[in-house]
Nucleic acid binder design. Structure first.
Lengths: 312, 312
DNA sequence: CATATCGGTTCAGTTTTACTTATGTGAAGA
DNA sequence: TCTTCACATAAGTAAAACTGAACCGATATG
């Protein structure tokens, strides 16, 4: 038996060997000779007080003690490697990796990317568009923009403008459907990506808030918000547009929000980054820029009344 | 900049120094001289490419890079140490640490402890009674008995007898309240510890299943199931008894379950242990013993009909 | 205002650890 | 049978980690 922690070099050798179930491969991974690795394992076993591997004919397998040690060892070294990478990234003031959902990336970030690049030519901005919620350390992410009701209090968080939904469409189509009531005959594009929000913020909820019976059938369905928006842009119908995603088109006149009322979603976009990273220059630059861009566009929707939370 | 992982001895030195914010204390913890520690930090910083500590007058503080590295480093080494301890424990065939909720510990395990000790005098059984769900590696736990609907599929799991609830009381009180209907006038002891189960398995649910209107008020409340059971044992009223917790008293006649129907809870007790540990002799012994004990007592409640899941 | 003290650093020398090259062993497969 | 493969062992060497003593600057103290 022994101390609180074994010799770390030997433990790392064990971890690689357990992962490959081969001393030779582990030795190659660590850039040492098989002899060195064999010796490390042996010394670790001596330290431990029992074999960690069973030596078979031309292979090795873990003993019970080895199987108990292996997962935690792998996990521990992975954690250390992630921490090291994270620390390394603090030294990099040139690049900034942002993760956001596909819709926000396509409809908010990408159209404004050029302006950010002009304002901060020294920063190399990278995107990682995914619905999967990333881990800052593991996935080498600096900043996340996420749509959610609540966020992890261990992170640096900044609420972006509150989110609501209202029907948006091309100006041509707006002439066709001048009132909320007239939407019953309109092709209503369905965006399934908001399904996870509770209370729901879908067509049924908006129409209910307007005291309008739901139509017998809906129009085309999309699983991602940006595709639904694209369909509306193409004149395919009316989409229940989320503020952040359609603001730019409203400002430019490509889409209009003809009705007076919007439905609060209860959720919003958040700016997220690790607390330790909140003062890194490129993160500060990005944060300031995103806040400025948001305040810039808020005038576009001043006219719209937000309906307090629906009951549903 | 550098490799995938820095020299581990240096990293460990950093971790201790970051935790204490003192090189001297860190050196003491690692049983080395301050000189050695200073050198390790310096070499780590060289490897990293930037300072990790700011040297102040008579103290040190973390730089931004240091703050980014420290939490992950601590976490990583903690994980490694936990894995090492877990592996060490596999070599110990004498002792067995079991965690369970307070009620199960008091009303099921403790009363049977003597029998287990007789059957396996070589095993030193330890208890860790807590509602907090433990981590096997971190908390040095071998086996957990937990009441839940579902369990982690990465663990070795064994479902214990299905759990239901039915009113139980002293024999004297059973004469007073011969039918479920008569319970409306009985002191109904409330056990709040089942609140987390869904669908709820409380008095309202049981009475509803019997088509009995809930009484205007309930009797004493307890936040833990064993205390509620104790109150019933003392003749303070009728408690909605969970099978596992009251079986022994039913078998011994201290309590009776006078009515024919029990309500299934949808949850049950589980035997849990890490997969790697499932064949350790004392765990096998404990598992076999607990299964045997359970099958032994099932005859006591043969008479009772279990009502399939309530609607609520 | 000296001066002791505290926390960290530097340096020279020593011990310990880690590694390589070369050789050995036993079982599987051509 | 005779390679070949995968690991073990041995001897020697390079590298690392550590110690003890001297050092440095800043605070605290009488």
């Amino acid at each position: 038996m022994s101390d609180r922690l074994p010799p770390l070099t030997a433990l790392r050798a064990f971890e690689a060997a357990a992962r490959h179930l081969s001393f030779a491969l582990a030795a190659a991974e660590l850039n040492v000779t098989p002899a060195a690795l064999s010796f490390q394992i042996k010394s670790l076993e001596a330290h431990f007080g029992a074999p960690l591997f069973r030596r078979l004919n031309r292979a090795v397998e873990l003993t019970e003690a080895g199987s108990a040690l292996a997962p935690g060892a792998t996990d521990g070294f992975r954690t250390l490697a992630a921490a090291w990478r994270t620390a390394q990234r603090t030294q990099d003031h040139q690049s900034l990796t942002v993760t956001a959902g596909p819709a926000f990336t396509a409809k908010w970030l990408a159209p404004r990317l050029f302006e950010f690049a002009q304002a901060h030519p020294e920063i190399e901005l990278r995107f990682s568009a995914s619905l999967r919620v990333m881990d800052f350390a593991r996935d080498n992410i600096d900043v996340a923009i996420r749509f959610a009701k609540q966020v992890d209090p261990d992170l640096f968080t900044l609420p972006l403008a509150e989110e609501w939904v209202t029907p948006v469409m091309t100006p041509a189509m707006a002439k066709q459907f001048p009132t909320p009531q007239s939407l019953r005959d309109a092709p209503l594009i369905v965006d399934d990506s908001i399904a996870f929000i509770y209370p729901p913020s879908d067509w049924n909820a908006w129409l209910a808030a307007m005291n309008i019976a739901a139509p017998a059938s809906f129009g085309p369905r999309f699983s991602q918000a940006d595709h639904a928006t694209d369909a509306a842009l193409a004149g395919a119908g009316v989409v229940l547009g989320r503020r952040a995603l359609v603001l730019k088109y409203l400002a430019e006149g490509q889409l209009v929000a003809p009705y007076e009322f919007a439905l609060a979603t209860g959720a919003r976009f958040w700016f997220l980054c690790p607390k330790a990273a909140q003062d890194r220059p490129q993160i500060v630059a990005f944060r300031d820029w995103i806040m400025r861009e948001i305040s810039k566009t808020s005038a576009v929707t001043d006219r719209i009344t937000i309906i307090a939370k629906h009951d549903a």
